[in-house]
Simulated scan of single mutants.
Amino acid sequence: MAEVIGSALTAKAAGAGARAIAERLGRPVETVRGWLRRFASRAEEIRQFFTVLLVDAGIDPAVPGPARTLFADAVNAVVGAWWSVTSRWPHVGTVSPWAVACAASGGILLAPAWPLETINTSRL
């Protein structure tokens, strides 16, 4: 499922509309719109989260330049994080950027409660 949703997000970042994406993926348009809206509503948080992962995981990370939309910036950060992860752990390269995004987000990237608030228990 991560691959299907990732394909929809990538198509939207490239400028496609929900109806065309839904038709291409064979999914209901309202389902696709839901994915796109949820991702768009937290695009900045997603961009930040995956940019940090990109920098932290990369051997020699290259942060993507700005895209034409925040949505596309967030998608680029996900793909950039995948690139960094695969540079450090080459066997990860056998999975897609969206499988890495799923793992990095605990499988809840588009869930209502993501991103989860973290608590630093090592500090008072």
Rank of each mutant, 00 (worst) to 15 (best):
A67F: 00
R27Y: 09
A57L: 12
G106F: 09
G107M: 06
V95C: 08
L36F: 03
A111Y: 10
D73I: 00
A11H: 00
I21T: 03
L70H: 02
L116I: 07
E23R: 10
L70E: 11
V75T: 03
T31L: 13
A81N: 06
V78A: 02
L110A: 05
F50M: 05
A72E: 06
A11Y: 00
R24T: 13
N120K: 10
F39C: 06
G80N: 08
F71M: 04
I108R: 13
A81C: 15
W83L: 04
S122F: 14
I119R: 08
G65H: 08
A99I: 04
C102R: 13
M1G: 14
W35L: 09
L124A: 15
P64S: 09
T69A: 02
A40W: 05
G6S: 06
F39Q: 02
L110I: 02
P66K: 10
N76D: 15
W114Y: 11
R47V: 01
L109K: 09
S122Y: 14
E44F: 03
T118A: 09
P61F: 06
P90L: 09
W89K: 13
S41P: 00
L36Y: 01
F39M: 02
I46N: 00
R68G: 03
V78I: 14
A62R: 15
A104L: 12
D60T: 14
A14M: 11
I108P: 00
A57G: 04
P115S: 09
W35R: 02
F50Y: 15
R27W: 13
A16I: 05
V79Y: 04
A113N: 06
G80C: 10
P66L: 09
A113L: 09
I5T: 13
A72P: 03
A62L: 12
S87Q: 15
V29F: 10
R42L: 00
A40C: 02
P28T: 14
D56I: 06
F71Y: 11
R37L: 07
P61W: 04
L54N: 11
H91K: 12
I21Y: 00
G6C: 00
L109F: 07
G107A: 07
V55R: 12
G65E: 11
